[in-house]
Amino acid sequence: MSNKTFNVYCDESTYLEHDRQPYMVYAYVSIAYNQIKLAKEQIKCIKQRHGYGNEYELKWTSISEKTFPLYKEIVDYFFMTDMNFRAVIVDKSQIDNNRPEYTFNDFYYRMYFQLLHHKMDMESTYNIYFDIKDTCSQGKLHKLQEILKWNASIRNFQFIKSYESHFLQIADVLMGAINYHLRIEKQTLEGKNVGKLKIVDIIQKHTKLPLNQTTLKCAKKFNLFFIALK
């Protein structure tokens, strides 16, 4: 019998075909079940220290110079804990809708399979939570359950609203930083969000890793996988 249970909070960014964004990113934050209560209280305290109520939703899009101190402490807190982050990224220009196995419709499920498949310890159990996006979410949930049914370690699949989970919000922030860094790498500093640039820099200092390439497969705390289709 498993002696550890983990909650895994999954989110996706710029995954639509015509959103004019170059990368598709899927990511999760995982946390041991027995650490959830304490982490919730600590995140609540961080928000309060910066003048935000517990109901304030952490979002990458909300980062600015004004909100930077809050998000800096949140990112620092993540790296102090046993929480883990993983993301899979694909250059959308490589997706060919003429290839049946590489259409945009198919990629939603392929990406989640890649995200979850390689990091599941079969001696542990997992509760998987997805950020609900649209009215099609229940159909997507059933298909994800079908695709991942082989994995007996997964105990529960569920869609939740991002405002309901601090951990889903942290996944959004870290994933947003990866996506932002990839998009603005070759741009000038003019017009860039200084708060967001600082958050990217903080993540790089914590990880001591470039954010534009695949990490070692064994990387546990902060794991990136860039999928090459060509």
Results as ranks from 00 to 15, higher is better:
K217I: 11
T125K: 06
S153F: 05
T103K: 04
N127W: 09
N105K: 09
Q187R: 15
D172Q: 02
T135F: 06
A87M: 07
R183L: 10
F167N: 00
W150S: 14
T214P: 05
Q114E: 12
K149T: 13
F167Y: 07
I154C: 12
S162M: 08
D106M: 11
R183N: 12
S162Y: 01
W150P: 02
N212L: 08
L115Y: 05
Q158M: 15
N84M: 14
H206F: 12
L141R: 11
L182E: 12
M120D: 08
L141E: 06
K143F: 15
Y112L: 08
L197G: 11
N127E: 14
N156A: 08
F157H: 14
G195Q: 08
R86S: 09
K133D: 02
E164K: 09
K161P: 04
I154K: 11
D96P: 02
T103H: 02
H181W: 12
T214Y: 04
S162D: 06
H181Y: 15
D91H: 09
Q94M: 15
G195E: 09
A171Y: 01
N105R: 12
L174T: 03
F104D: 04
T125M: 08
L174I: 13
V194F: 14
F157K: 03
R183D: 12
C218P: 02
S124R: 04
E123N: 14
E164P: 02
C136P: 00
I147D: 08
Q114V: 03
P210L: 11
N212V: 05
K186G: 15
L141I: 05
R110D: 01
D96L: 05
A87W: 04
Q169D: 04
E101A: 04
K161G: 07
I203E: 01
Q138L: 14
K217H: 10
K196M: 13
A152R: 12
M122Y: 13
K92I: 00
M111D: 01
M122R: 14
A171G: 07
Y163G: 06
S124N: 15
W150D: 13
S93C: 07
